[in-house]
């Protein structure tokens, strides 16, 4: 069992956890993830490690309640425990001094972009961060991002905070201003990552995305997380999760992620029903 040391909501439905996992804390590098299994009969699901403290022996993860497991996770508090936390998995982000690097996070994707943005900064890059959210209340890690950025931008779809519009519009604006951009990291919903790839493609800017296919074991055994990159089959759990955005077949990823929509809904409904029953009692 892995004990939760702290649990706080960063925004509605988005919660940050510090979990005791000393071996993982010692080993983890930016871009890597853990597989979690909350309890007996639970599913295994991946979450990127947002931060770690090797001294304290803890790792930080940030989860948005989307399906049954992430919503159940978000009901846990400090002092509770998680049955299984395995990692650090996946290949670490490729970090070097590219020059000027733009890190783009969409929604909870900001939590995944954060450690890599910090590593890019530490490697000597001039770091520009663009973090997008639907609305002001959903903006997360604003201060953390600022701390690792030379320039930090917030965008909201409804204009309630920062730049009014999408992250891609802000990125386009920066590129159009004539500045030389050497590297772009984009992490967020599939349509956002695809859109970023299309913005940078004409300029030949090296662009990396972190993919989120369905995973089961996460250790290179089942082949469930295969993605099409440059017309080749790649396994996100061992070959990724980061890939060259200009080579990724985003449509294939989106299609494959829909496979269990029906079951996910059924599981969600059963969970929601159970929650209502518990709250009544």
């Amino acid at each position: 069992m892995y004990r939760i040391v702290s649990a706080i909501f960063l925004a509605e439905n988005i919660k940050k956890f510090e979990i005791e996992a000393p071996r993982i804390a010692k080993k983890r590098k930016a871009g890597q993830f853990v597989m979690l299994r909350l309890a007996l009969n639970g599913e295994r699901f991946p979450l990127t490690i947002a931060d770690s403290d090797p001294e304290k022996g803890t790792i930080t993860i940030i989860a948005q309640g989307a399906g049954k497991s992430t919503r159940a996770l978000n009901r846990l508090e400090a002092g509770d425990a998680i049955a299984d936390v395995v990692g650090p998995l996946g290949s670490p982000s490729h970090i070097e001094n590219f020059g000027t690097a733009v890190s783009i996070g969409g929604g909870v994707g900001t939590a995944i972009a954060y450690p890599t943005a910090a590593a890019l900064k530490a490697a000597g890059n001039y770091v520009i961060t663009i973090n997008g959210a639907r609305t002001k209340e959903l903006v997360i890690l604003e201060n953390e991002m600022k701390a690792v950025s030379d320039e930090a931008y917030i965008t909201t779809d409804d204009g309630s905070y920062g730049f009014n519009g999408f992250v891609t519009q802000k990125l386009q604006e920066i590129i159009d201003s004539g500045r030389k951009i050497d590297f772009v990291l984009a992490i967020g919903p599939i349509p956002m990552m695809k859109a970023v790839a299309e913005v940078t493609r004409p300029f030949g800017i090296k662009t990396v995305v972190s993919l989120n296919p369905i995973m089961i074991d996460g250790t290179g055994m089942c082949g469930g997380c295969r993605v099409t990159v440059g017309n080749e089959i790649k396994f996100a759990c061992v070959d990724g999760p980061e890939f060259d955005a200009h080579q990724v077949d985003f449509k294939n990823l989106a299609d494959r992620n829909r496979i269990y929509l029906h079951e996910e809904k059924e599981s969600d409904e059963a969970f929601a029903h159970k929650c209502r029953m518990t709250s009544k009692a």
């Binding site: 009969n41 639970g42 599913e43 295994r44 049954k68 497991s69 089961i216 269990y260 079951e263 996910e264 059924e266 599981s267 059963a270």
Partner: peptide, 8 residues
């Protein structure tokens, strides 16, 4: 054993 077990 879905949905007793979470994995479909």
């Amino acid at each position: 054993d879905f949905p007793t077990s979470d994995t479909p």
